[in-house]
Design a protein around this nucleic acid. Structure first.
Lengths: 300, 300
DNA sequence: CAATTGTTTTTTATAATAATATACAAATAC
DNA sequence: GTATTTGTATATTATTATAAAAAACAATTG
């Protein structure tokens, strides 16, 4: 009933690995130095040293520390099982929400989520607290959390917000200097769009990836932490909904390719006005698609 | 070492108050009904009923529940002290950060914050997790949290983001129907601006409030949860920095009044282009002011 | 059989606590 | 003497155990 000693165990193995690089009988650096190496506090280092002394790996008396013998594989300490990739948990959670069409206003059980996703309960709570800033979840009066989105209103507001952001991004691209990498990227994207247009009859499902690449490219010009944070959520949501709404997919994607090309044309001509107008047209189409995809899923 | 029974205690008093409205010897509603009244689960209600029976307030046998006597003030149960207004904690925290110029990259001690703000540690963690979405705080590798902003980069990106949002808001105001309440609000704001302009020599410090009102008015037209969430943080930060930067305050405010009036003029003329241009000018000034205020505070 | 209560199971909020970090004092080496 | 390093004390954090509360289910009752 306290915190785990994973940090100590990992540090111990790390220090052991460091000692392997030392010649036998070599003096061992100061505790502060070791703490730096392992990225932990001196408290942990002293625990490590104590164990190493106990195992007869080192002599330790005051500031006189010496390696007695080379560490063996057997000297290593066991680290509790896999640290459960916490990094991509966000991705997996949104994936779950969207893929299984978890309806709006579903109560979320932290206990259950914790089991299915193999994430500690308080990490989950932190994550949900973060999402509540995006209005995707909220606390329930009787305790616990609930999934607010994905309603029609949410989709509309998200689309509108996306339009605002991309409108700005397009304007910035048009103003980008000639040597900006975005131009090379756009040239490549144009080629890829044209290629897919040729093969649209068979490869139309490839468009989803291309779409994401295109929008990411446009937005990459904007260096802004707030916008970047939102783009992550936005692109994920749009991306998934495009993938599922199979109605008229081929025709829809063919049209979208032309819309993308129109934006690229205007941008390369440095016609900011035209580019923004083209972007606006495309974003309107996207919004319509997102909303119709919601209708098919019987939400909102 | 478990959750508090505040919910039970509050529910108990609430049920007691409900019983006061009943005539003596009246039958008491079903547990489900009582649960609805108090907004808690049946589990809590049964605890309440058990206590009421024990005190001789009611008879309780199966579904036969009757009031035996009118509840007295003395029957009430003590509720643990003030629930510490958790609602405005966000405001108080940002206030603290800005008012005391907490420098960027300051480690935040949850334990200390919990004490000074009188907020439970896990509520704080939830709050910090939310702020980390805005890039204001982040987790430290060695545990705990740290305050990232308020750096120059943060201010620049925040200003830019604000510009994007307000640019959009102004465009929407220009398109608002004649009967939209924003027009009445703007008319009032125009009058207030003109009044302050007359008295600028003495009342220039009044501008800060007016500025906040003006921007809130413009943004009120945009109905979007994402934008609204950000506006809260943005307006708070700009508001405070304006209040503190005392250099040339009078002159600065006088200029800002004219900028605001120019925006109002263009909007009332339904000249979207001119309004956006005026807004852009004003936002540029704001950004400069914010940055210079940072320089005076020796940050970034 | 619909509404209500009795009982069991699950989930949540929270305080207690070991692990860790940090701060400070004493000792050592140069 | 002073800059490092270690020894020790204190503070903070992460995590768990657990009572409180909610939710699910079964058994009554009118």
């Amino acid at each position: 009933m306290a915190r785990s000693d994973t940090r100590y165990r990992e540090a111990y193995n790390q220090i052991l690995a460091y000692c392997e690089t030392l010649p036998t009988a070599a003096p061992i650096p100061a505790e502060t130095r070791l703490a730096e190496i392992a990225g932990v506090s001196r408290t942990v280092i002293r625990r490590c040293l104590a164990r190493m002394e106990e195992l007869g790996l080192i002599s330790w008396q005051g500031r006189d520390k010496h390696l007695l013998r080379a560490p063996l594989a057997d000297d290593r300490i066991a680290v509790p099982d896999a640290p459960a990739d916490k990094s991509d948990f966000e991705q997996r959670f949104l994936d779950w929400v969207l893929r299984f069409d978890v309806p709006a206003n579903t109560p979320l059980s932290v206990a259950e989520l914790s089991r299915t996703f193999d994430v500690a309960q308080h990490d989950l709570k932190e994550f949900l607290a973060g999402l509540s800033r995006f209005g995707l979840v909220s606390r329930r009066p009787q305790g616990g959390w609930m999934l607010l989105g994905f309603t029609k209103d949410f989709a509309i507001e998200l689309s509108d917000f996306r339009s605002v952001l991309e409108h700005n991004a397009v304007a910035q691209v048009a103003d980008a200097p000639v040597d900006h990498p975005v131009w090379a990227a756009l040239a490549q994207l144009r080629a890829d769009h044209l290629a897919l247009k040729q093969a649209i009859d068979t490869d139309f499902h490839e468009f989803s990836k291309l779409d994401e690449r295109f929008h990411r490219c446009i937005n990459s010009v904007v260096k802004n932490r707030f916008i970047a944070e939102f783009q992550k959520v936005i692109s994920l949501i749009f991306h998934y909904h495009y993938m599922w709404d199979k109605t008229e997919e081929k025709h829809r994607n063919a049209a979208a390719i032309d819309e993308h090309l129109a934006i690229i044309d205007a941008l390369e001509a440095r016609d900011s006005e035209a580019a923004q107008a083209a972007a606006l047209r495309h974003l309107r189409t996207s919004k319509t698609t997102l909303l119709s995809s919601l209708r098919h899923h019987d939400l909102g």
